[in-house]
């Protein structure tokens, strides 16, 4: 039932080649020299030697905002979602399907629909919490729920929470000790994967930021691309590379391979 070596590499090679075309086209685009034609590295050099002028300040602001948003979103996942999942797993296992349904709902409710109501919600949020950049993370936490839930759930199902808890309790551990010193260390992998995927989703988010008139990395790129599409494409390529490396790390974390161990 498995494909032959030739078939495998023929399919992967062909699809890979087709999918490489737009990425290659972006790269070629950034190397173009204005109207006189030809190619050079001047734009990449300008960027990496820090010679970009104030017109690109927006990108750095957007990047800074996106980093803040990514951090707050990860905190939301770790502080709100993970403890709730643990509590339900330990005390109210019957509610797990309900939690799963709620966490997967954002797949059914598109961001473009959420943003209509979020405009009103943020009117109130601004009065209570101010209009700081980080407040947008409250909306992003919802967007990453399906991904984060799946990552933590996969880990939770692989760990025998019941036995671990009973063992710790019978040795005299208090509940906080059980959670902090027994359960959370066992869930490290799921929490790490959930955090990485949250970072990737937040760095790529455009819909909500754009329609709420906030600045993040993606909206800044669109603004810059109106004046200098070339440099905007360089930034997009770098962001793409960063996201790829991030997901490569998730894959390694997820498959549970530790350095130096070959199995």
């Amino acid at each position: 039932m498995t494909p032959s070596r030739t078939t495998r590499w023929a399919i992967l090679g062909l699809v890979g080649l087709i999918f490489a075309v737009p990425i290659a086209a972006m790269t070629e685009f950034t190397l173009r020299r204005g109207l006189e034609g030809g190619h050079d590295l001047s734009r990449w050099i300008t960027l990496f030697t820090g010679q970009l002028d104030g017109g690109y300040r927006q990108v750095w602001v957007g990047l800074g905002n996106s980093v803040v948003l990514a951090i707050v979103t990860v905190l939301l996942v770790l502080v709100l979602l993970v403890p709730t999942m643990l509590l339900i797993r330990l005390r109210f296992p019957r509610l797990m399907p309900v939690l799963e349904f709620v966490c997967l709902l954002p797949i059914t409710i598109p961001a473009i629909v959420l943003v209509i109501g979020l405009a009103t919600v943020y009117g109130v949020v601004a009065r209570m919490l101010g209009s700081g950049v980080w407040t947008l993370a409250l909306a992003y936490g919802v967007l990453v729920l399906p991904f984060a839930f799946r990552a933590v759930q996969a880990n939770l199902q692989a760990v025998d929470v019941q036995t671990l808890t009973e063992a710790a309790r019978s040795l005299g551990a208090s509940w906080p000790t059980v959670v902090v010193r027994v359960l959370l260390p066992n869930l490290r992998r799921g929490m790490l994967a959930a955090s990485f995927i949250a970072v990737a989703v937040v760095l790529g988010e455009f819909t909500i930021a754009s329609l709420l008139n906030r600045t993040n990395l993606q909206t800044a790129l669109v603004v810059v691309s109106k004046n200098d599409p070339f440099t905007a494409v360089i930034f997009a390529l770098l962001a793409l590379l960063f996201a790829f490396l991030l997901l490569l790390v998730i894959g390694r974390v997820g498959s549970g391979r530790r350095p130096g161990r070959t199995s």
């Binding site: 972006m26 790529g204 793409l240």
Partner: peptide, 18 residues
């Protein structure tokens, strides 16, 4: 993972360049 979830704006740039 990157192409499926991160796309958005980047894809619009990519296809304009292609």
């Amino acid at each position: 993972g990157v192409l499926a979830q991160f796309g958005g704006v980047m894809l619009a740039f990519a296809f304009t360049a292609t």
